Simulated scan of single mutants.
Amino acid sequence: MTTQHVTARTISPAGLLSPQENAPLPTEDRLAIHELIARHCLALDTGDEAHLASIVTEDFRQEHAVFGAMEGRSGFAALMRDNPELLGAIRHQAVNIAAVGTGTETAKAVHYTIVMQVHAMGAEPTALLPRLFAHGVVRDQLVKQDGRWLIHRRTYDQMSLTADLFPEDQRKEALRRRTPDWET
């Protein structure tokens, strides 16, 4: 198995590592944001479209280094619906979650996504399982609506992909996508 790796350091959102530069974020809100991100992973892995739609704003927008841009609740759920053979064989993990307030009802968060292949993507396994499938950086802009935190904007970038599952041009483009402007 060959894996393409990003050699540069992770690009960190401005001020995220210095929470004193941001609005205070109460412990209750930090926990709710961590839970939201974890539930997103579980919803992807269990195929729960209704839950995926419920954790994003109506005007949600996502930029994904591999799957491109998508908008709205239905666009978010479509990623899972349109890739059942891929998503049924993998498990998502969100690690190193850090969140800070950007206002009284807004926050930003960043985490690493680790995607493991745990089942064969066909009749016979083509590699020893489980194995690392992909790794990347996810950054979110969040808003609190009706007492609940929702994902408003999400960007996946700095992706590293397993070479035998993605064409070389797709891997190179995913590695190239780095958006240092964390405010957009």
Rank of each mutant, 00 (worst) to 15 (best):
1 M>T: 10
2 T>M: 04
2 T>I: 10
4 Q>W: 07
5 H>S: 10
5 H>F: 11
5 H>M: 09
6 V>A: 04
6 V>W: 02
12 S>D: 01
12 S>T: 07
14 A>N: 04
16 L>R: 11
17 L>H: 13
20 Q>H: 10
20 Q>S: 09
20 Q>L: 08
21 E>G: 07
22 N>K: 13
23 A>H: 15
28 E>G: 04
31 L>F: 09
31 L>P: 00
32 A>D: 07
33 I>E: 04
34 H>M: 10
36 L>P: 00
36 L>E: 06
36 L>H: 06
38 A>E: 13
40 H>A: 05
40 H>K: 08
43 A>E: 06
45 D>T: 05
48 D>C: 06
50 A>I: 05
51 H>Y: 14
53 A>E: 15
54 S>N: 06
54 S>M: 13
56 V>S: 02
58 E>I: 04
59 D>G: 04
59 D>F: 01
59 D>C: 00
60 F>V: 05
62 Q>V: 09
63 E>A: 08
64 H>E: 13
64 H>A: 06
66 V>A: 03
66 V>N: 04
69 A>D: 14
70 M>W: 04
70 M>L: 10
72 G>V: 05
72 G>K: 07
73 R>I: 05
77 A>K: 09
78 A>L: 14
79 L>P: 02
80 M>N: 11
81 R>V: 05
81 R>A: 15
82 D>E: 13
83 N>G: 01
85 E>Q: 06
88 G>A: 08
89 A>W: 09
89 A>Q: 04
90 I>S: 06
90 I>W: 01
93 Q>A: 15
93 Q>K: 12
93 Q>H: 15
95 V>K: 06
96 N>R: 14
96 N>S: 07
97 I>H: 01
99 A>L: 01
100 V>G: 00
100 V>D: 02
102 T>D: 01
103 G>W: 00
108 K>D: 00
109 A>V: 01
110 V>D: 00
113 T>R: 03
116 M>Q: 12
116 M>T: 11
119 H>T: 12
120 A>S: 10
121 M>A: 07
122 G>L: 03
126 T>F: 00
126 T>P: 00
130 P>R: 10
132 L>Y: 05
133 F>H: 05
133 F>Q: 06
134 A>Q: 11
135 H>V: 15
135 H>A: 12
137 V>N: 02
137 V>F: 03
137 V>W: 07
139 R>A: 08
140 D>L: 09
140 D>P: 00
141 Q>S: 09
141 Q>A: 06
146 D>E: 15
147 G>P: 00
148 R>I: 02
148 R>G: 04
149 W>P: 07
152 H>E: 12
153 R>F: 01
157 D>Y: 01
158 Q>S: 09
158 Q>N: 03
162 T>W: 11
167 P>R: 07
170 Q>L: 10
170 Q>I: 13
170 Q>Y: 01
171 R>L: 02
172 K>V: 13
172 K>A: 15
176 R>Q: 14
176 R>A: 12
177 R>A: 05
177 R>E: 12
177 R>V: 08
178 R>L: 06
179 T>A: 13
180 P>S: 06
180 P>A: 10
181 D>M: 04
182 W>Y: 08
183 E>V: 03
